[in-house]
Design a protein around this nucleic acid. Structure first.
Lengths: 194, 194
DNA sequence: GCCTTTCTGGCATTTACTGTCAGCCAGACA
DNA sequence: TGTCTGGCTGACAGTAAATGCCAGAAAGGC
């Protein structure tokens, strides 16, 4: 049951987000201050920090849900699917979900063009990697035995590297190239199956 | 010719670095303030920021030189050496140089255990990747043709991912495992040559 | 020994972020 | 319906990193 607090909270979050992204687009991330965002969205600075712990979370905030989705999809892949394919399926799901918001390209461009945001983004990525590690390790244990963890670490890191590269190329192409295709090409270049 | 300014500058930098790393080890990175470091190394806060632009640079500072070394070694590899091997040679050189300071393990642990430092480190890594891109692209153009840049991006990202993974395992093993071996194992796990 | 260049220290200021506390308002309960 | 309670809010103050500014000291060239 959604209480009135929940609803007004959601409204406030949306208003803040709209204001923030508009200002970021207009004058850049660094040159936009928290005070300005708070003022223009009619909320106190203190409350803004209660909704979004940091300025960076205004842009990279709702990635927690995507992380959960990624983990769930990867975990649910049948056992005969390879680690590579399981991860690929997970990213496909994340991609579908992320694109549904419509602002994915705009946000990605902002992240890729702003060093401090890019760092934050990578930080979240690292947490995803850590959380995927046990899932992939378990999947590899039948084949790789004691080296399963090292293999899992390497595979996960590589997959994320390719996702990152594909995303960057997607942004630089203004969304014209398909992320899934780019990812496949990256992985092919690395694993030598072309 | 080394002027007196250069020398006293070097002395000051070393004193600041010693103080800072000692304090970081004693009480952690976040709980150590710039004011404290300045006070205990007998320098003004203002001058400290002139030597090291940011607090993070106290830890990740001298990576610029390593980046130059990496690029130079990679560029100097003969043309018949593959992109993979050229990058490997570069990292071997960086590894040898980095270990010569003696504090590499301690610093790496600090970086891996402190989120804000880890972000900063990744940021520098991203710059290295960007700077290596033209070098590797050129090396691939004979084989890959128009896809050279995409291949280069993917290969560089993957190599860095493996370096990162190897470094993390090296830190977690308290320096007992050899980074070079770990790197080879990671790459083998990814490229399937084992 | 003088003059210019360069570095240093102290001060004020900006900006992100946190602690605290009083007031308020939705929601439960009688 | 009236009241109480608890989570939410806003205002204020404070911390810490980082930057701008300026006067003064030290180093280098002559």
């Amino acid at each position: 049951m959604t209480t009135l607090w929940d609803r007004s909270r959601q409204v406030a979050v949306q208003a803040i987000l709209d204001t923030a992204l508009r200002l970021f687009a207009e004058q850049g991330y660094e040159r936009t201050t928290i005070a300005q965002i708070a003022r223009e969205s009619g909320i106190s600075q203190r409350s803004l920090f209660r909704y979004f712990g940091t300025k960076e979370d205004l842009v990279c905030g709702d990635q927690q849900g995507l992380g959960e989705l990624l983990k769930r999809v990867v975990r649910e892949q049948p056992a005969e699917v390879s680690a590579w394919d399981a991860l690929r399926a997970g990213f496909e799901a994340v991609l579908a979900e992320g694109n549904s918001t419509g602002r994915a390209l705009e946000l990605s461009r902002l992240i890729f063009d702003t060093p401090s945001l890019r760092s934050r983004y990578v930080e979240k990525r690292l947490r995803w990697q850590a959380e995927l590690l046990p899932i992939i390790t378990e999947r590899l244990e039948a084949d790789a035995g004691p080296d399963a963890e090292l293999h899992a670490r390497a595979i996960i890191a590589t997959v994320f590297a390719c996702v990152d590269t594909a995303t960057e190329l997607w942004v630089r192409s203004d969304g014209r190239l398909a992320p899934g295709d780019l990812y496949d090409q990256c992985l092919a270049a690395v694993r030598g199956r072309d």
